[in-house]
Every structure is written in structure tokens, then in C-alpha cells.
Amino acid sequence: MVEKNYLKEISEIKSIMNKSSRFISLSGLSGILAGIYALIGAAIAIYILENYKNSYSGVSLLPISYLEYLLLSIALVVLVLAILTAFVLSSKKAKKSGEKLWHATSKRLLINFAIPLFTGGVFCLVLYQNNLIGLIAPSTLIFYGLACLNASKYTLGDIRYLGIINIVLGLIATQFIGYGLYFWALGFGVFHIVYGTVLYNKYGKK
């Protein structure tokens, strides 16, 4: 009887420590969906690029800058969809466990995730400015990996590994310039799906 009480006390301490320092309502399902959006986006981009190379198809008549805008808007749509899904599913999950979505821990998570990501965004603009287009895809992977690594201290620790693996992938991608889109699909698509599935199985729908 006494032992049971102390055990309960210890588990309560653990739960408060987690609740007060980490945002734990991150949804695994949103990771899987983000991966699927990324794969669809990459498939459309590859299709458009292939069409562009084939000079007989209609798309090729477009000027190159238009193609750039098209690819950029695909990337943006994927990004917005992924963020929206993560937001909606995480707020649902938070509601179910009686937590607020917007409080000290989620703010801290967001800020620490955003700093490396924002740095990466600016850096990619600089690469574009200097016409180093081939390095943009590897750089997004590296900076996204750093963002995950940094954020892992404030949420489920598992995203630390997602971060490390994306950093490694990004560094490898720097040696295969021209295949950026495929590395992108692997990093943002496949790895997200794998990681989302792991989270989903580990922490459930709760």
C-alpha cells in the first residue's frame, strides 16, 4: 500500500517535469502527412522538370523564371499544408489530454525551432543571389536538421534523430548536386513518414 503511494508520487513528479519543460502534444500523424505532401510535391516538381526538358511539350514554352516561380509555389504549398496539419492535429491532441496548445513550453519549442530555420532561409536566399542554386536543396536539409536538433530539447526527444539524419543527408547531398530534388524527397518525404510512424506507434493517438 505504502509502496504504491510512493510509486504514484514518483510518476507524478516525472509527468510534471515533462509537462512543464517539454511540449508533448506533437502529433505523429502530422509527421506522416507532412511526408506524404512532400512526396507528392516532389513528384509534381519532377514531372514539370521532365516536361520542361522535353521541348515538344507545352510547359517548355514558358520562360525559365516562370518555371522557378512554379517550383517555388509548389514548395510553399507543401510547407503551408504541412504546418497547418501539424497545427490542427497537435491542437486536437493537446485538447484531448487537457493541455493548452499555446503556453510557455510550446512557445519555447517554436522559438528554438524557428531560429535555425530562419537562418537557413536567409542563407538560401543568399545562395540564390549568388547563383549557387545547386546548394539550396542540401542547405534546406542541413538547416532543417539543425532546427529539429535544437527543438528536440523542448519536445519529444525523438525528433533529435530526425534532425541528425537530415543533417547527414544534407551533407551527402552537397556531393551530388543536381539530384537535390531526390534528396529532398528522401529527407522531407520518406524520413518524415518513418519518424511520424515511430511517434504514432510510441505515443499513440492520445
Partner: peptide, 21 residues
């Protein structure tokens, strides 16, 4: 015990956050 648990893993926690937790 709850107050201490929250304080030892954070640099500092304000009153309202503690109340919420």
C-alpha cells in the same frame, strides 16, 4: 512536490504557468 518538480527542470516558472501545470 509538484512545484519543486516543475522548478528543478526549468530556469524559472511564473505563477500562472505553475497554476496551469
Amino acid at each position: 512536490l509538484g512545484i519543486m518538480s516543475a522548478l528543478v527542470v526549468n530556469e524559472a516558472v511564473d505563477f500562472n504557468t505553475l497554476k496551469e501545470i
